[in-house]
Structure formats: structure tokens, C-alpha cells
Design a protein around this nucleic acid. Structure first.
Length: 298
DNA sequence: CGGCAGGCGGTTA
DNA sequence: TAACCGCCTGCC
């Protein structure tokens, strides 16, 4: 794997270390003694679209986070990251390694015992702290869409408008496009990428992102074209790390009707239930429930 | 062929 | 403010 040096995300949060960390050489980062992490569960639980397994067992994944490409390996509590860019702070933050997921699962089960199976099933899910703009555009694309096509659409977007950041086994890797690049795109170009009616949403949203600055709350997100209640909750959860957000899509709606007897239309009731039962951990609950239920239904 | 996929915007009553 | 409807595209 060859990489060009990528730029780093500027605003990295400081975090308290609970795992061992070694900096072996440039762009080769190791975190040891990690609990509650599983690459398959984390990358396949529907929160992110740009990571692919390199082998059947799912120990190794390759993908891109914002403008940083990487191949990660995880076994026996040791996470090794071979990256084009992003320092140890960036990746520590990205994988949310400061958060104690064991304690979160205990708390969720204590308040709502019926969620235990879902927590056990998706035991290694971590909610990635993703780039805000990438999250906004990705989840605009996700509306009324299916996962294979979402992934495909996002990759074409990156190939067309993203900066080249390296190549992996002969295949070029592209960063997620900047707001500037997408604001400058035109509708015809986008329609060639088969984005459908979401194309204009993307251009308009990129322009607004540049003019009005980063959205910081639900209201600002909802003011963007193509962002409704469900997509806004996804952006809050995955892009703003607001782990109290509880996105209700068709799967979660199914869960709520099956598990808790809600009427199919009663999204408000479901939202209130999540708030009362799961509180500030509702986002984690949503991920466990969604992943468990979707895998059982496939 | 209609139905549907991790919804949304616009229009009605 | 709730209930409909149409929507790009691709796959069944």
C-alpha cells in the first residue's frame, strides 16, 4: 500500500488515555489493551460507508476517514493503523477510544433489560466520530436508498471531486470531497453519477455549509435541503457526537413496533420512549438495536 | 411489471 | 400539523 501524506483534521479533542499507545513510525499507529471493539460490528452497523473488509474474518479493514486513508488490523485487543494521514490523536478520537462501552451497555440493560441481546450481539460497536461535512452529505445520499447504492454513490462522488490520497493494490484512493469542491459541482455532472434527485440537495447544502458555517444543532441541520428528522439525527449522532440522538428509520420503526408494540406511524411516541428509557445513551441503543435487528432480518 | 430501499419536500385539508 | 404523493435509481 502506498500513500501520499494527507492533511490532518485540525480540531482534535484531548482525551484521557485508558489504553496503551505506541507510535512505531510515521503513519503506523498502535493502540493496545482495547476492549469493546470489533471492526466488523463497527464498520457494518450502518454508521459509515467507506470501509471494506480485506479478508473473510474481518480482522483487517481498509477505508477512508475524511481525507485520511488507512488499513486497520485488530486482534487480541491490539489495534494497528497504517494510515496516509491523521496522527495518533486523530485516530484515537475517530475510533472513540476514550469511551467505556462496557459501562454504557450495563447502563442500557439496567434501564431496559430487553435490549440485552442486542448489546451482546453488537458487542464491539463503537460510534465513530466522523467528519461533519462528510456525514451530512453521506446521509443526504442515504435517504430513500439502499446501502450498496449509497456506498457506490459516495465512492463516485469521491472519485470525481475528492483529492487523490494514495493507492491500495493498484486502486486509487480518494479523500471525501471538500465543501468547496461540491459547491462548485454542477447538476449535470452529478446526475451522471446517478445520484438522482439528491444531486441538487448536495450542491445546495455544500454552498450553505460554506456560507453559514458548520451547523451545530438540530435546527440548523433541518434548515438544509435534503435533511429531514431522520437524517438530522444521523448527522447529530455520527457527525456531532451527540450520543443522545436516536435516528428512527424503517428498521428502527420495525423494532419499535415488534418489541414495544408501537403503532407504525407513531414516530413521536417512539422518540419519546427512547428519550425516557435510554436518555443520553439513546444513540448507542439505536446502534445496537438496528444492527441486531437488521442482521436477523437479512 | 409493481414494490421497495436506512426520507424528504411540497401540497393539501 | 397530519396525511398524502412523487421522486432518481437499481434490484427483486
Amino acid at each position: 500500500m502506498r500513500y501520499r501524506k494527507g492533511s490532518q483534521r485540525p480540531d482534535v479533542q484531548k482525551a484521557t488515555r485508558s489504553v496503551d499507545m505506541k507510535y512505531e513510525e510515521l503513519n503506523n499507529i498502535v493502540f493496545d489493551n482495547i476492549r469493546d471493539f470489533n471492526p466488523v460490528h463497527t464498520f457494518e452497523c450502518g454508521q459509515v460507508f467507506r470501509w471494506r473488509p480485506e479478508e473473510e474474518k474481518g480482522e483487517i479493514y481498509a477505508g477512508v476517514a475524511g481525507c485520511n486513508a488507512a488499513r486497520i488490523k485488530f486482534s487480541d485487543g491490539k489495534l494497528t493503523i497504517e494510515a496516509s494521514g491523521g496522527d495518533q490523536e486523530f485516530w484515537y478520537d475517530y475510533f472513540d477510544l476514550t469511551t467505556d462501552y462496557g459501562a454504557i451497555k450495563d447502563e442500557l440493560v439496567r434501564n431496559e433489560p430487553k435490549i440485552e441481546k442486542a448489546c451482546e450481539y453488537g458487542y464491539g460497536i463503537r460510534i465513530l466520530r466522523q467528519d461533519l461535512f462528510e456525514t451530512i452529505i453521506s446521509f443526504i445520499i442515504s435517504q430513500n436508498n439502499n446501502i450498496p447504492r449509497i456506498r457506490k454513490n459516495i465512492e463516485s462522488l469521491c472519485e470525481t471531486y475528492g483529492e487523490e490520497i494514495g493507492d491500495i493494490e493498484g486502486k486509487t484512493v480518494y479523500a471525501f470531497p471538500t465543501p468547496e469542491a461540491l459547491a462548485d459541482a454542477d447538476e449535470e455532472e452529478l446526475s451522471e453519477l446517478k445520484l438522482g434527485y439528491r444531486g441538487p440537495y448536495i450542491i445546495e447544502t455544500a454552498k450553505k455549509y460554506l456560507e453559514a458555517g458548520c451547523p451545530t444543532c438540530r435546527e440548523e441541520l433541518l434548515s438544509m435541503h435534503g435533511v429531514g428528522p431522520k437524517v438530522a439525527n444521523c448527522i447529530m449522532l455520527f457527525g456531532l457526537s451527540d450520543v443522545a440522538a436516536f435516528p428512527i428509520d424503517t428498521w428502527v420503526r420495525q423494532i419499535m413496533t415488534d418489541m414495544y408494540g408501537f403503532a407504525d406511524k407513531d414516530v413521536k411516541g417512539m422518540q419519546r420512549f427512547a428519550e425516557e428509557k435510554f436518555g443520553s445513551y439513546a444513540g448507542y441503543a439505536q446502534q445496537y438495536l438496528f444492527y441486531y435487528y437488521r442482521d436477523r432480518s437479512l
